[in-house]
Each structure stands twice: as C-alpha cells, then as structure tokens.
Amino acid sequence: MKKRFIWVCAAALLFSLGMLAWIYPELPARVPMHWNAAGAVDGWGERHMLLMHSAFLLGVPVLWLALPTLSPQRFAVDSFEATWWFSGMALAGLFAYLQCIHLLAAWRPGFPMDRALVGGIGLFFVLVGNVMGKVRRNFWLGVRTPWTLANERVWYATHRLAAKTMVLGGLLALAAALGGLPGTVAVAALAGAALVPAVFSLVYYKRLERAGTLEA
C-alpha cells in the first residue's frame, strides 16, 4: 500500500501539472480565487497563485510519509497501515481534483465551481468514511478530540459513528451537487458529518465517566 500511495501521488501531481501547463498560457492575468455559497466569484488573484494547489499536492506525500515516524509508540499507525495509506491516496486525489476544477473555472467563465467543489469533497467524505471505522487511536487521522484520545472505548464508538455520518454527509453533498440544490445544503451536510461525531465523543465520554466505567 505504501508503494501504491507513492505512485498515486506521483500520478496525481503529474496529471495536475500537465493540465496546468496546457491551460496556463490561455488564462487571463487575474483569475477567480474564491467563490461564495451562491457560486459567485468574490475574490480574485494573480494566475500564478493557481500553483498553490500543486504545492499542497507535493506536500501530501512528504507529510504522509513523515507523520508515522513522529508518532509515539502507543499511538502508531501500524495497526491500521492500509487505511492510513488509502486515506493519503484519497487526499492526494482531492488536491489534484481541486487543482483541475480551479483551472477549469479560471479558463471557462461560468463553470459551476460551487457544485464541482462540494461534489468532490462529498466524494472524498464517502471514500474516507468507508474506512473510518478501521482507524485506531493516533494523533494524525480521525476524530481527534480530547475525549477520543483519552479513551479507547470512546475512540472506537466515535469512529464507528463518524464512518456513518461521513458517508451520509458525503452522499448528501453529492446529491446536492448533481441535483443543483443550494450550496448551503451541501455545506450543512458536510459540516454535520464532521461535527456530530465530535460532539458525540464528549457526550459519550461524560456518560462513561458518570457510570465509573472509563478505561485508559
């Protein structure tokens, strides 16, 4: 999986750089950089700023390879290594996708950036949500609240819930993007998918604490 992760990152970077080299000469000096919830451009910048996505994409493999070496032994990623590398591949794919749709939006005025953005993030949530229940206690990936990190039982229950909320939120975001629903629907679905497990971790921890059944 580690080698596959490296190959996927390399392919994603080369593809996005190739698209950048193809489209860049045809771009205007100033390009859209930010869109509001209604899909209207509300921020502009120099076209060289489009390179920032490639910089993030280059940073993904560096970061993903380095972080496991920094983990304390008790919180190592070895116990869910396949999930770790899969999540890294999904993240690299997301950054490559963001680079491509940003280029298309700068190249072709009227490109539905808001729908493309929430649709891509929704797909990312679905992919990572499908493996979220396999993530074990660590400092880098998952719902890392004080309560999940403090207790294995809370971590396990929270991530089983997060797997469901992320898939559901991602599917709702995809449906909103494909169905042309307001961007606020997709944003609410994605925000809820992330916030509900975090709140649950606190509630569940306190419930175990009151019952006197907390374990390290």
Score class of each variant (00 low, 15 high):
Ile6Gln: 11
Ala189Leu: 13
Phe111His: 05
Leu14Lys: 00
Val154Gln: 06
Arg207Leu: 12
Ala92Gly: 04
Pro28Ala: 04
Phe200Pro: 14
Leu171Gln: 03
Leu174Tyr: 09
Ala189Arg: 08
Val185Phe: 15
Val167Cys: 12
Arg137Glu: 14
Ser16Trp: 07
Leu57Ser: 06
Leu202Gln: 12
Pro112Ala: 02
Arg108Tyr: 03
Ala150His: 14
Val199Ser: 09
Leu178Trp: 15
Ala66Ser: 14
Ile23Met: 07
Phe95Val: 06
Leu123Pro: 07
Leu70Met: 14
Leu149Glu: 12
Asp78Trp: 13
Gly43Phe: 02
Ile6Val: 12
Gly192Asn: 06
Ala191Thr: 13
Ile6Ser: 12
Leu50Pro: 07
Thr165Arg: 05
Arg160His: 14
Arg30Val: 11
Ala92Phe: 00
Gly110Arg: 01
Trp84Ala: 09
Phe139Cys: 14
Cys100Gln: 04
Ser16Gly: 02
Lys2Ile: 05
Gly169Phe: 05
Phe75Ser: 14
Asn138Thr: 11
Phe5Ala: 03
Met89Pro: 04
Thr213Gln: 15
Ser71Pro: 12
Leu172Gln: 15
Arg4Pro: 01
Leu98Ser: 03
Leu190Tyr: 08
Leu103Ile: 01
Pro182Asn: 08
Leu58Phe: 05
Leu181Lys: 07
Val187Leu: 15
His34Glu: 02
Pro197Val: 09
Phe80Met: 03
Gly39Ala: 05
Val196Cys: 07
Pro197Ala: 04
Ala10Trp: 05
Pro61Ala: 01
Thr69Arg: 15
Glu215Thr: 15
Leu171Asn: 09
Val77Lys: 15
Gly119Val: 01
Gln73Glu: 15
Pro72Ser: 09
Lys134Val: 01
Trp147Cys: 13
Ala194Gln: 04
Leu91Glu: 08
Phe75Gln: 14
Pro28Glu: 08
Ser16Asn: 05
Trp155Gly: 12
Leu65Lys: 03
Ile121Glu: 02
Val118Glu: 07
Met52Ala: 10
Pro32Thr: 02
Trp155Glu: 07
Gly133Leu: 03
Phe80Cys: 04
Val126Lys: 02
Ser71Thr: 10
Leu202Lys: 13
Leu190Cys: 10
Glu81Tyr: 10
Ile6Cys: 10
Val143Asn: 11
Glu215Asn: 13
Ile101Glu: 11
Pro112Val: 03
Ala55Lys: 00
Leu98Ile: 01
Leu94Arg: 02
Glu152Arg: 12
Val62Pro: 08
Leu178Arg: 09
Leu214Phe: 09
Val126Leu: 05
Ala21Gly: 04
Gly119His: 04
Leu20Phe: 08
